[in-house]
Design a protein around this nucleic acid. Structure first.
Lengths: 192, 192
DNA sequence: ATGACTTCTTAACCAACGTCAAGGCATACG
DNA sequence: CGTATGCCTTGACGTTGGTTAAGAAGTCAT
């Protein structure tokens, strides 16, 4: 059934009522994209947000011709472009790393749905606040740790990423150059 | 008038209606604390959130006897402890760096107020989402920059902090040791 | 005024990351 | 089948941050 994964996801934050089920199915639709498809380019205005049913999306910026991986999203994660719902052009790219199936939303439908189902807006607020705290915590963990610790933490918390994503893309995600990540991995191997 | 600063703050996100004004004045109250006062200790359960009217609050963790500055909040910023509204003990400390005047809120009153004034919950959702995006951006800027660039960026965006906060506290905020920050400052001086 | 404490700086040394360059090893493609 | 391409690794070298230790300057309390 459509949106099953979303409901499971949402149920982590609050009990899912019939009202919310209805709201979700009315306000989202599904699309599939091929590996390599670019959902959002730098300079574009975005009017879509996503929930990943299957696959993987990478957010990156292009600085001096160099890709900096900002975030990597996989199944059951929501992706909201930083300029979603505004008229500002995006600073980032969103690219499908694999064949990807998405639930899509947009600000207009969202607005209507929130008016029709206030319960969903309440849930959305709780989720946004929770994500803000999680984001805050990963930021402070990042600051307080070395590149080696960051890599080990990534392997522990999201072991699939190291398989799914090229290492040079993971490097900038960890805040180091590919050569350094290579040496870090070697160091870890040698220790064991 | 009470809450004037909050209203100015909120008006950055959406027009302030009479309803919202009423909601704010009914759901918050003001308190003053002396420099050095600890609002939240590691291990404590928190049931307060804050909006800074005057002064400065530092959030830090204590690891191996070493303080790691997580965040520094000043006038017109909201401070929500990571365990706010939950029964989880805090991993962090919140300390008044200066004499500080705060607007206080708590989950119970918040809940009541959201039920009474749905418009405020809608505004809260927008603010949380906006803060999430801002947080995301500062995280990616941090990852992509060197300690020197981070320091220069801090001086540019929040020049008051370098005056108000001891440098050794700013160091861990930038992800380096105090000795390194000292060298970074010297390097910058020499360049000019 | 004295001593204790805090904060910031400096120096010496080591470890780690960045840079540049080269090479290996797959996979894709003509 | 061979060549091109993309990705990962390695080596050499310079720069920068961490560590340890010491000292200078300012603040505070007695």
């Amino acid at each position: 059934m459509l949106g099953n994964e979303i409901l499971t996801y949402l149920s982590r934050f609050a009990p899912i009522t019939e009202e919310i089920k209805k709201a979700i199915s009315e306000s989202t639709f599904i699309k599939a994209y091929k590996k390599g498809h670019v959902l959002l380019k730098e300079g574009q205005v975005s009017n879509e947000c996503y929930f990943i049913l299957k696959g993987c999306i990478r957010c990156f910026s292009l600085e001096d011709g160099e890709e900096k991986t900002i975030e990597i999203y996989t199944e059951a994660q929501s992706v909201v472009p930083t300029n979603y719902g505004t008229s500002h052009p995006s600073e980032y790219y969103l690219e499908c790393v694999e064949d990807t199936i998405l639930n899509l939303g947009n600000p207009e439908i969202e607005k209507e749905t929130f008016e029709k189902y206030p319960e969903l807006e309440s849930l959305s607020r709780m989720i946004a606040e929770k994500m803000l705290l999680e984001q805050h915590q990963s930021f402070s963990r990042f600051k307080a740790s070395t590149p080696e610790e960051r890599y080990l933490n990534l392997v522990k918390t999201r072991p699939d990423l190291v398989q799914r994503i090229p290492l040079y893309q993971i490097a900038s995600y960890l805040g180091v150059k590919p050569e350094s990540l290579s040496r870090i991995r070697k160091r870890i191997m040698d220790k064991e």
